[in-house]
Design a protein around this nucleic acid. Structure first.
Length: 411
RNA sequence: GCGGGUAUCGCCAAGUGGUUAAGGCCCCGGAUUGUGGUUCCGGUAUUCGUGGGUUCGACCCCCACUACCCGCCCCA
């Protein structure tokens, strides 16, 4: 019986690796230049962290978590969960290490695998990777601006500078709740015409009705009185000023964005600013990046009240949009039938940080040259004459020119 | 959780009831016994996702299962 990779998981092999590494290098450059420090948190956490942090009205917590009971069936067993996203974990670390004591802002970026038990599909796997950023301690829209700028700059660095940003403001706890009530009231007469999913959302999380793609539901949003409520400027003065200030900053940076009043994100912790970056080249899973402000989360998880804002990007989705990179050739391929001389030379070259490879089967020169031309820029011929007289014949495999090199230092 | 599609060598694939399962790429070997990229020659699936069934005979028909893909939902 052949064991295969689990459903919704995949191996990332040679042909994909250069592009993955390139994406990561760009992330590191962009975020570290902006003062974000990488943070690596564990892949599993207490189940309760996600239940409280991500929110139990979300599908992620309700039906998509990989949860295990550790310690058997006895009463002391603890429940752990493979992280479905990384904000909760970073916030946990932030509180646990008292990072809020340092002078704000505290800026982090991360990369790593996330796990969600969903039906695999284009742009969606059960183990997938996210690159993200979290910024703590700043309530002003300057932080929202910094975070969005970094998302855009990173996308630009991987050649995706033209994707448009959608933003919205959900308001603070107070105006968000007023808005929810207003939506429930105006939709009440139409409740039985909404799709089944929306009927459930009506009770659990009415804002998400606005996200519905069902045509019948969309028609209801077109009804004058409903439309008036949905598109009303429900947010309070403070929230509006926060949002408008942010928009002003984005304008100054020439970041193209559009206001999408129907943009509500599925995670419970968001307030005020939310944003998404989409590409229609992705099929139905169109969001490459999603993020927003979560001013209440640190306190909810037991820390001091701390404003925060961040985003996450799906690396597999990013990968599918980006120009692919090829495996780099090594500089030298040593062609020889003397293994000990060959590997000693390779070792010396590698110690000088020069890439070198060679044949391991003592094959004839024609075969070794063939391999050399596929994998390397130059062949170093190390035959009997060269070894005896102590020089190297170096052949440029592109131009087919060969020259004699007398000392190792010239390589 | 609900709908639809597909499954033939590492990859791309032809074959759709009849004794040896095309072809291309890659890989391996040879022509070229110490010099590659071109060319030429040769080699690589006792087997067609798995298990049953129909049939004298199945990769091709039927049933079940599994996996993958696509859409819904949700999200990155």
């Amino acid at each position: 019986m052949v064991i295969k990779a689990q459903r919704g998981t995949k191996d990332i092999l040679n042909d994909e690796i250069p592009t993955w590494q390139w994406i990561l290098e760009n992330a590191k450059n962009v975020f570290q230049n902006a003062g974000f420090c990488e943070i690596k948190t564990p892949i599993f956490e207490a189940t309760e962290l996600f239940a409280r942090g991500v929110g139990d009205s979300t599908d992620i917590v309700n039906k998509e978590m990989y949860t295990f009971s550790i310690g058997g069936a006895d009463k002391n067993s603890s429940s752990i969960t493979l992280r479905p996203e990384n904000t909760a974990g970073v916030v946990r670390a932030f509180i646990e290490h008292n990072i809020g004591r340092q002078s704000p802002p505290q800026k982090f970026w991360y990369f790593g695998p996330m796990f969600r038990y969903e039906r695999p599909q284009a742009g969606r796997q059960r183990q997938f990777h996210q690159i993200g950023v979290e910024m703590f301690g700043i309530k002003e829209p300057t932080a929202d601006c910094e975070v969005i700028l970094n998302a855009v700059e990173f996308l630009k660095s991987v050649g995706l500078g033209d994707l448009e940003v959608e933003i919205n403001s959900l308001g603070c706890t107070k105006c968000k709740n007023q808005y929810k009530e207003a939506i429930k009231n105006v939709l009440a007469p139409y409740l039985d015409k909404l799709c089944d999913d929306c009927k459930m959302r009506y009770e659990k999380n009415p804002l998400r009705i606005l996200d519905c793609k069902n045509e019948d539901c969309k028609k209801i949003f077109e009804i004058e009185e409903v439309k008036n409520v949905i598109f009303s400027d429900y947010i309070c003065d403070d929230c509006r000023e926060h949002f408008e200030t942010l928009c002003g900053y984005l304008d100054e940076l020439d970041i193209k964005y559009s206001r999408n009043k129907l943009l509500v994100r599925g995670l419970d912790y968001y307030n005020r600013t939310v944003f998404e970056i989409k590409s229609n080249a992705l099929g139905s899973q169109s969001a490459v990046c999603g993020g927003g402000r979560y001013d209440g989360l640190v306190e909810m998880l037991g820390g001091n009240p701390t404003p925060a804002v961040g985003f996450a990007m799906g690396v597999e989705r990013l990968y599918s949009l980006v120009d692919k990179k090829e495996l780099q050739k090594s500089k030298y391929f040593i062609v020889s039938n003397n293994f000990s001389e060959t590997i000693k030379l390779a070792k010396k070259l590698r110690e000088k940080n020069i890439s070198a490879d060679f044949d391991f089967q003592n094959r004839k020169f024609a075969k070794q040259m063939e391999k050399a031309s596929k994998t390397s820029h130059y062949a170093i011929i190390l035959g009997e004459d060269e070894i005896k007289e102590g020089y190297f014949s170096v052949k440029n495999l592109k131009t087919s020119t060969q020259e004699r090199i007398d000392s190792f230092d010239e390589l």
